[in-house]
């Protein structure tokens, strides 16, 4: 992997999204509204006025939006780029097709996640002014790390969707399943044993667990470190395994010309 090219392609992605966003202030405003709407939906599941509970929902809403967005957004954008005739030119960059595509969109997800995290600062301050700075840091950290673990899966979904020549991301049902299995919506302990085992394989499970512990004030540094290590390990493992499948997807894409 050419590091110089890798960094160059990240810069291309950053440049692309800054250029597009500066022309669409209305779109940016609407974008920022969504995490609050997710918050409302989370309240519907568990109405609560406990500040820590609200903060927990805020953290979950950021992660939910980040991870959902990644899973279907990459594929959805691949479809759009194909319709617009742009996809071949991204694929023809001198690196792997999935990398070129992901690096063009990764800055978008990180930027949006950071913005969404920042917009919750007033709410955090109102709920718990003493610890709001700490919570903000955690939010920012989650918004950055939250986008990473499912990147491999999002590429695979993109290839599968492109291959099938359907008009939508027909694998988007994976998103709520992953959220369910990760414990974002209900505690993992409520799931059947085989699902609980499956949840241990998902990096997002550990992120949601960290949120749970932080907001319940019951976490020791050791426990948190342990969870962070598990998160990193499962992220690397999952993306490594998926990378093999993604490579196959790339060959298939080039063999069949489904991106053209």
């Amino acid at each position: 992997m050419d590091l110089k090219l890798f960094l160059c392609q990240i810069k291309a992605g950053i440049f692309l999204w800054f250029s597009l966003y500066k022309r669409s202030p209305l779109l940016v405003s609407v974008l920022l509204l969504r995490p609050y709407l997710v918050l409302i939906a989370l309240f519907a599941i568990e109405p609560s006025t406990n500040p820590l509970s609200i903060i927990r929902n805020v953290l979950i809403s950021i992660l939910v939006v980040s991870s959902i967005d990644i899973l279907w957004d990459v594929a959805s954008n691949a479809l759009s780029l194909r319709f617009l005739g742009i996809l071949p030119y991204i694929i023809s960059a001198p690196s792997s097709p999935s990398l070129s595509l992901l690096l063009s969109y990764l800055p978008k997800y990180i930027l949006e996640s950071v913005l969404k995290a920042l917009e919750f600062l007033p709410l955090l301050f109102v709920l718990n002014s003493a610890q709001s700075a700490g919570f903000l840091l955690i939010l920012l950290l989650f918004s950055l790390v939250g986008v990473l673990p499912l990147l491999g899966l999002s590429s695979l979904i993109a290839y599968t969707v492109l291959s099938s020549k359907e008009e939508t991301v027909w694998l988007d049902w994976l998103a709520p399943l992953i959220l369910l299995v990760s414990g974002a919506l209900y505690p993992v302990s409520l799931l059947p044993p085989w699902l609980q085992l499956l949840s241990r394989l998902f990096p997002t499970t550990y992120l949601f667990e960290i949120i749970q512990l932080i907001t319940e004030n019951g976490a020791s540094a050791q426990t948190l470190l342990g969870l962070a290590i598990m998160y990193l390990t499962t992220s690397i493992l999952l993306n490594s395994i998926l990378y093999l499948l993604v490579s196959k997807g790339e060959s298939e894409l080039l063999r069949r010309g489904i991106h053209l």
């Binding site: 392609q9 291309a12 692309l16 250029s19 022309r23 617009l84 005739g85 742009i86 070129s100």
Partner: peptide, 20 residues
């Protein structure tokens, strides 16, 4: 094959960076 909401120069800049 180009982004509609970008100028000619911006489109070229983006693809230039993408190509290293």
């Amino acid at each position: 094959g180009f982004f509609y909401k970008l100028t000619a120069r911006e489109n070229l800049k983006y693809f230039g960076m993408l190509y290293g």
